[in-house]
Design a protein around this nucleic acid. Structure first.
Lengths: 168, 168
DNA sequence: CGTCGGGTGTTATACTATAACATATTCTGT
DNA sequence: ACAGAATATGTTATAGTATAACACCCGACG
């Protein structure tokens, strides 16, 4: 009875979660999906994906660019934007419009609309893919005769961890 | 039985609607609200609001800037951004994060979360303030222990007018 | 070999937004 | 009307985000 509904992954990663594992899983999934679809996950694209997955806080294109330069790689804005465009097209990352930043996709099994909870304190962007919310969006739009292609839902506020007093 | 639910305003303005009236109403409301709240709707702010209301398509800050220059007024980016910040704070306009652009608020009676339908063909951004959608958002967030301050909902797609073949 | 296409490198530039400080305007109390 | 305070605007410079255009490389395929 712990959970009435199951989630495949909890929306907010725990503070002490094993993030290296997040990255490993994401890179493994990306490799698998690209192979399946005949797409090339080149070293550059793989590295950019890894950098986007550096944390659960969305990262800007120019921050990625700086890291690439630290790698010793020749890099300019188009380098990173092209890699980001590829990853976006494959559904491996999402763009957070309200932050001009990018975050790894928690469920990269095909492209899909996503909804984000973005904490204004810790900066974490948690992906929720709530079918009821998606349905409510579809209903609202349909009533206006509008056909939604790309719903952008970015809910800014405070996550559970940051709402608690900073105690232990 | 034409309408089971009433809307104060239809989300998408008709093609041939009297837009001058939209602008007049918006400016009148803005004047009233600012007077009520002891805020100063200066000529600059009023002009910027008028320019934002130039159409139902969100307008960029630098487009506004160009128009101000055409007016013969000294203008630089801060001029327009400050006016926009004022109008945003009073709830007289909204910012569309996914377009980096601004649009007049259809119901400027106090600040409020808004949801937009943005047509990718005609560019129109229609404000819908659907309480059921807002409730669905609140439910989704609450289940994750998340407290939403500022929901951003920008639904991109095709409006009813643009879905029809371009005939008549 | 040759060429074709995709990926990356390179240079330049466009677009969006804010910091910091100077000046002007309006409001308030006297 | 005036001084002083608060608000609004002007001005200069710069930070941050994104794309256009063209050159080069390299592997696949005939």
């Amino acid at each position: 009875m712990a959970a009435l509904k199951r989630r495949r992954t909890p929306p907010f990663p725990g503070r002490g979660h094993d993030h290296a594992r997040c990255v490993d899983v994401a890179l493994g999934e990306a490799t698998r999906l690209c192979a399946r679809d005949g797409q090339r996950l080149t070293p550059l694209r793989r590295r950019v994906l890894e950098l986007v997955w550096g944390s659960h806080q969305p990262v800007g294109a120019y921050a990625i660019l700086d890291r690439l330069k630290q790698d010793g790689r020749a890099a300019a804005p188009p380098t990173v934007y092209r890699a980001l465009d590829f990853l976006l097209a494959r559904g491996l990352i999402h763009r957070i419009a309200s932050l001009n930043a990018f975050v790894g996709c928690a469920r990269p099994d095909g492209s899909h609309p996503a909804q984000f909870l973005i904490c204004r304190r810790c900066g974490t962007a948690a992906e929720i893919d709530d079918p009821r919310l998606a349905a409510a969006i579809g209903r609202s739009a349909t009533e206006s005769g509008f056909a939604v292609d790309a719903p952008i839902v970015e809910l800014r506020g405070l996550c559970a961890g940051c709402r608690r007093p900073a105690a232990g």
